[in-house]
């Protein structure tokens, strides 16, 4: 065997291990979505659905599912929560993404490109808020929200989610903006105001970075669970992760849990899949 072949073989082996590492944990649960309760409960655990079916996907949206043999899988009692959760998660994630982007782009620009007094301290404050554990701010938010009547509202959830997304996205974008060429000089010679420079020159220039930042805001918001669990579970403002946890804790329904989990993974997966080229462009400060 030649050296080149050995090398390819080792690489193929390494790739196989990497793919197994990447997909085994997901596969192990996602397969439940296509299995029946009895199949899931079999011992030892089955490696794949012996008779894949889509019943769980119908059930979580409130539909009964009848197989060809006439077995009926009843609609889930949580269906309303799941549908609401899907809708709310989308609303919260989109609103949070829009606000975060709108607010963070000028903020990071200012911090990355201009010199002004107290900059270092203000920046440190922003970075400090990145390291705040949600569990510590959860208590005050919870008591505050109880008093203001904001528990169980989308507005309340959006506000807290912004406290996560703004600092982290700002931190990423500041690094990105720092590495742009000094076109402000050109813009000044060309007679453009600062605002024009920012909105009509810097923003189009930084499109790819801003897009990645927006997507990261979307991901953080879409995947947020801690605040949602405490602030909106069981209400009309429930989000998908909070709604899903009903299948995990109260009455475990692995099949429906897996189906809704798969559903919740689709948007992030699409995003990650198409944006992976740009992710490492976000220079880390």
């Amino acid at each position: 065997m030649t050296g080149r072949n050995t090398k390819t073989l080792w690489l193929a082996l390494a790739v196989a291990v990497a793919l197994l590492w990447t997909f085994l944990p997901m596969y192990w649960v996602v397969k439940y979505a296509f299995m029946t309760k009895t199949e899931i409960a079999r011992f030892p655990p089955m490696l794949y659905p012996p008779d894949p079916m889509l019943a769980s996907f119908f059930n979580i949206f409130g539909f009964d599912y009848t197989t060809a043999e006439g077995t009926v899988f009843k609609a889930s009692g949580q269906a309303r929560q799941i549908i609401l959760g899907l809708r709310n998660s989308l609303i919260v994630a989109l609103v949070v993404t829009a606000i975060t982007t709108l607010v963070v782009v000028p903020l990071s620009y200012v911090f990355a490109r201009l010199q002004f007094p107290f900059k270092g301290k203000l920046l440190a404050a922003i970075l400090l808020s990145v390291s705040l554990p949600p569990v510590s701010t959860l208590i005050p938010f919870y008591t505050l929200y109880v008093q203001l009547g904001l528990t169980g509202t989308l507005f309340g959830l959006i506000v807290v989610t912004l406290t996560i997304t703004i600092p982290i996205v700002a931190w990423m974008l500041i690094g990105f903006f720092r590495n742009l060429p000094p076109v402000e000089l050109l813009a000044r010679v060309d007679g453009f105001s600062r605002l024009y420079t920012l909105t009509r020159i810097i923003v189009p220039m930084a499109r790819s970075g801003i897009m990645v930042a927006a997507v990261i805001a979307f991901l953080f918001s879409w995947n947020e669970y801690v605040y949602a669990q405490i602030l909106v579970t069981g209400s009309n403002a429930v989000t998908l992760p909070a709604a899903m946890s009903g299948f995990l804790f109260q009455v475990p329904e692995p099949a429906q849990l897996a189906a809704s989990l798969l559903l919740s993974l689709l948007p992030p997966f699409c995003i990650a899949f198409f944006l992976q080229k740009h992710i490492a462009e976000m220079h880390i400060a």
Partner: peptide, 14 residues
């Protein structure tokens, strides 16, 4: 590469 990145998109609760 696009497959290897996927676990990053999974939320911590997932």
């Amino acid at each position: 590469r696009a497959l290897i990145i996927l676990p990053w998109a999974v939320s911590p609760y997932g």
